[in-house]
């Protein structure tokens, strides 16, 4: 179980765990915004709910980590249901506004609730999110997302993104599917939050502000909306860039911003947006093994528009 722990220098290991947590967070948001096309601006709020819920389970009840993880996911999922149920039946940008407002409400509540430490935060959470645990969870979430994407349920979500009226006319109960999807997405955010809590060990409400939600959204957009490999890549790139740029100290965030602008200029659909990675891999394997180059399987790259 502890195979990966201590394999890397502590600093790198810490970054690797953070990257893993952000991959999980971004994959949850990718399901909501990338696959189903519903813009959520409050993903960090669900992360904070998961983080606090799991911390309480660990601290107050002293239960094993697996229960803390599940509690984080379930708590976030319940709030996903509460916010999603009334807002997802509407069309347009209502979800964006509602999630934005919800994020601020959660932050204010956490600031003012003595049970979670208020502005002082919640300290003394045990360190449980080791590299091994994080890695296993990342693999599970990726595997789950791949399965969901290629299923009847996933196709229904894609149909909703593409044309919700047509989806509804072909037997998809669009509001029900959106709510189910949103609960799954926020559940995953809660798991990410629980991991975060047990890595960072101190929770403070201001860590889960609007900018955190935007940061996660950036990863999905940069990687390519709706693309699982893209989202993973986006999370890796955007989490490690600030670390890589540490040498430039004062100019770090400036360079980060400039890189974002440049990438959006040259790959407006995201790094892997519109790239079918499985096909690309098959194709490159074929070209390496020297079999027919004139394969009918066209590389589906739809960039640039």
């Amino acid at each position: 179980m502890t195979l990966l722990n201590g394999l890397l220098p502590p600093y790198i290991e810490s970054i690797a765990i953070t990257v893993g947590i952000y991959i999980i967070m971004a994959l949850g948001l990718n399901l909501i915004t990338g696959v189903t096309g519903q813009l959520s601006l409050g993903h960090a709020a669900y992360m904070s709910i998961g983080a606090y819920a799991s911390a309480i389970v660990s601290l107050q009840l002293g239960m094993p980590f697996i229960f803390a993880l599940l509690a984080g996911g379930i708590a976030a999922g319940i709030f996903g249901l509460i916010i999603g149920y009334p807002t997802l039946r509407l069309t347009g940008d209502y979800l964006a506004i509602a999630t934005l407002g919800f994020g601020e409400i959660v932050k204010s509540l956490l600031f003012n609730m003595p049970i979670v430490g208020g502005a002082m935060g919640l300290a003394g959470i045990p360190y449980k999110s080791t590299l091994t645990v994080t890695f296993i969870l990342v693999v599970i979430v990726i595997w789950m997302m791949l399965r969901v994407e290629r299923s009847r349920f996933g196709r229904a979500l894609l149909a909703i993104r593409e044309d919700d009226i047509a989806a509804e006319c072909y037997g998809i109960n669009t509001s029900l599917y959106k709510v189910k999807m949103f609960v799954l997405g926020t559940f995953i955010a809660g798991i990410g939050g629980a991991l975060w809590a047990h890595k960072i060990m101190v929770l403070q409400p201001r860590d889960f502000g609007f900018m955190k939600s935007i940061e996660i959204l950036n990863m999905v957009v940069l990687g390519g909306l709706g693309s699982i490999p893209g989202t993973v890549l986006g999370a890796i790139v955007l989490t490690s860039i600030p670390e890589v740029l540490r040498f430039s100290s004062d100019y770090r965030m400036l360079l980060y911003g400039a890189l974002l602008v440049i990438m959006m200029r040259f790959r407006p659909n995201g790094l892997l947006g519109g790239v079918d990675v499985t096909k690309l891999v098959k194709k490159s394997i074929k070209s390496i093994t020297g079999s027919n180059f004139t394969n009918k399987e066209k590389k589906k790259v739809k960039g640039g528009d």
């Binding site: 299923s151 009847r152 349920f153 072909y170 037997g171 189910k180």
Partner: peptide
């Protein structure tokens, strides 16, 4: 879609 059943857990 209307003639099939699988949901999230099926997926």
């Amino acid at each position: 879609h209307s003639r099939s059943k699988a949901g999230i857990f099926g997926a």
